[in-house]
Design a protein around this nucleic acid. Structure first.
Lengths: 205, 205
DNA sequence: ATGTATACGTACCGATCGGTAACATTGTCA
DNA sequence: TGACAATGTTACCGATCGGTACGTATACAT
């Protein structure tokens, strides 16, 4: 294989600062593989092969496969809140519209073949042990989601904000899971509609 | 086919007339291990060791580990619909109360330490490949759940029964997942309350 | 040019994975 | 007693698992 090491060293990087490039390629490939096929299903050999690097390179940047999985989820966490904040920013001061926008987006994303749900949720299912590095990241992400949803339920003026926030979380998690269980035409496409019904029923009258 | 169906009808009492069947012990142990710690996380060696049998015994009763996992889920399916039908039978002719009973039970089950959610859901997360034997069982179970919930939504007199049925399914799946993510005090304890709110908001007026 | 630090590659480790071959032992029933 | 089916015993297979010892190449500052 003529994988010349000089051709793709710089991926149109802005400046000449040189954080390790192998680490980025590894994390990118691991992200894709872990998300699509599951963490336990992917071996480190496949990661380094697809990344065009070698195993020692992986273990110089990451202490273990478990820690690589945690890094994958930390990256996932960043992008997750980016999407969340986009929905929030699109409707300033209107939490109900923010939720609707976020859920509509989720509902759309679930309606593609081979949708794989939420990487955080999936990782928690794969690693029941609460002390696993990947699970720690996953649980923190979900705690934060709960916190935000309950806060938005307060801002919406719900009679029982905690119950509404938790109800929205249940609908969201249900969408992630049933999206990958049912594929196209599944229940996840109804998540925004149901959330809006639930919100309507939960407001102070 | 060397292995017959081997459906147990062991009398299995204190007398020496019924040798405990290896297949049953294997399936019982696999059930417990697969459910609590995940299918991919458990090796066949651990199963046979805990079952007090040997590996050839496992492979005389089950063609492969994947098929053993499918058998585990078929057993899970049986017990799942037993619990479902119990809630239904407790409130004849009252689908709303049936749902409430079923969801109250789920909400309670989630409020224990180390709750592990739904074995069907977990298996689907562990095996994204739709052709995997375990996933086939899992998807069939969820299709049936969707069918029943939509039917009950019709019987409740919902304005849009399919939407309500799917909304209930999302809440249920959300409870399974968030139950194992949050543990005690998590959002899953609010599943019955939210389902009732959603039902109330979905009925014809 | 040379030292030094960093990035990378070759080759390998022991353990475990799912699965099997060949044979010995047991209990049951005819 | 003989036949049969189920299970146990031991040893083994190739593949893959996560992880590492150790030598080599490149970059840069002196």
């Amino acid at each position: 294989m003529p994988t010349d090491k000089n051709i793709d060293l710089t991926i149109s990087d802005g400046h000449a600062s040189a954080p390790p490039k192998a680490a980025k390629k590894i994390l990118d490939v691991a992200y894709d593989l872990f998300y699509r096929r599951g963490i336990r299903a992917i071996g480190v050999d496949e990661i380094v092969k697809r990344a065009g690097v070698t195993k020692p390179s992986l273990y110089r940047s990451f202490p273990s496969k478990d820690e690589l999985a945690a890094s994958y989820l930390r990256q996932y966490d960043l992008e997750y809140w980016e999407r969340f904040d986009e929905a929030v920013a699109a409707h300033p001061g209107d939490p109900r519209a923010q939720i609707k926008a976020f859920l509509t987006r989720i509902g759309k994303r679930t309606q593609v073949a081979d949708y794989r749900g939420c990487g955080m949720t999936n990782a928690a299912v794969e690693y029941p042990d609460h002390s696993h590095p990947a699970r720690v990241v996953s649980e923190a992400n979900k705690q934060e989601l709960r916190r935000r949803l309950r806060g938005m339920a307060v801002a919406m003026g719900a009679q029982d904000p905690d119950t509404l926030g938790d109800g929205l979380l249940l609908l969201i998690e249900g969408a992630y899971i049933s999206g990958q269980l049912f594929g196209l035409g599944g229940p996840a496409q109804a998540v925004a509609r149901n959330a809006d019904l639930l919100i309507e029923a939960s407001l102070k009258k």
